[in-house]
């Protein structure tokens, strides 16, 4: 195991690929993305292969995940947002799978990289902005002008609203990335203690077990927060408040 707790975030190229001047190498990160894809697809498709009216345990879990996301969209963005359900569902399960797979020792946490989380949040941000303008035209800019404010106040408020709109993808991506990175770094540091302390390492080991439990909760919660915020932004784009 690497001594530096940050070494676990290193990107290692497994297969070097160059495609049209772009470095598309297959890395450890890509490998775990593929694992996440396979795990989710297997979970969703194999769990439903019987399509029974009275679901077994596996099928119940699949249905539960479906209804969790469906309710989340319906409650935050209304029923008009149901057409974006497959995207939000993919987003939620992908982040959740990446977060949880990162808990496995010696694995790699895809979501601990700002490049990945920012790409996802930027995609949501751009998509939501396009949906907003497509639905409301230039009327969408009303989002930046609070109603009933005096013109002088608007001069201050509009920049604030615009900035608050543009920092959404930043806070969205930073939150996920920071949570995953902090949790995993901490786990690695304590793991180092366990090894270096020998027999006395039982104390940090117990702490690590508790911390691992907490990390699982954080992994689930962060996936949920990311997707519910995407729903809230979608709600803004659809309903203009």
């Amino acid at each position: 195991m690497a001594q530096n707790p940050l070494d676990q975030f290193k990107i290692n190229r497994i297969v070097e690929i160059q495609a049209g001047g772009i470095d598309a190498s297959f890395t450890n990160s890509a490998a775990w993305m593929v694992v996440a894809l396979v795990v989710i697809s297997a979970f969703m498709i194999m769990g439903m292969r019987q399509k029974s009216l009275v679901p077994g345990r596996w099928q119940s879990m699949v249905e539960m995940s479906y209804e969790l996301v469906a309710n989340m969209i319906k409650d935050t963005a209304g029923s008009e947002a149901q057409r974006y359900f497959p995207f939000i569902f993919s987003l939620f399960t992908f982040i959740l799978a990446c977060n949880l797979l990162g808990m496995i020792p010696y694995s790699f946490t895809v979501t601990s990289h700002i490049a990945v989380t920012f790409a996802m949040s930027a995609f949501v941000f751009i998509g939501v902005t396009i949906i907003g303008f497509a639905r409301h035209g230039l009327g969408y800019t009303k989002l930046f002008a609070p109603e009933g404010a005096s013109p002088i106040l608007l001069v201050i408020l509009i920049p604030i609203e615009i900035i608050s709109y543009f920092i959404r993808p930043i806070s969205l991506s930073v939150r996920l990335f920071a949570n995953m990175m902090a949790g995993h770094t901490m786990l690695k540091v304590f793991a180092g203690f366990v090894i270096s302390l020998g027999m006395a390492g039982i104390v940090p080991l117990a702490f690590m077990v508790a911390l691992t439990g907490l990390e699982v909760i954080v992994a689930i919660l962060q996936a949920y927060i990311f997707s519910i915020l995407a729903c809230i932004y979608l709600n803004d784009a659809i309903h203009l408040h």
Binding site: S164, I170, A178
Partner: peptide
């Protein structure tokens, strides 16, 4: 909807503030 997200609200607020300053 069940009440999942209440716990999430606390997690959101801190990052919201920091990313404003960082921006």
């Amino acid at each position: 909807e069940q009440n999942y997200s209440s716990a999430g609200v606390a997690f959101r607020i801190g990052v919201d503030l920091i990313s404003g300053v960082a921006f």
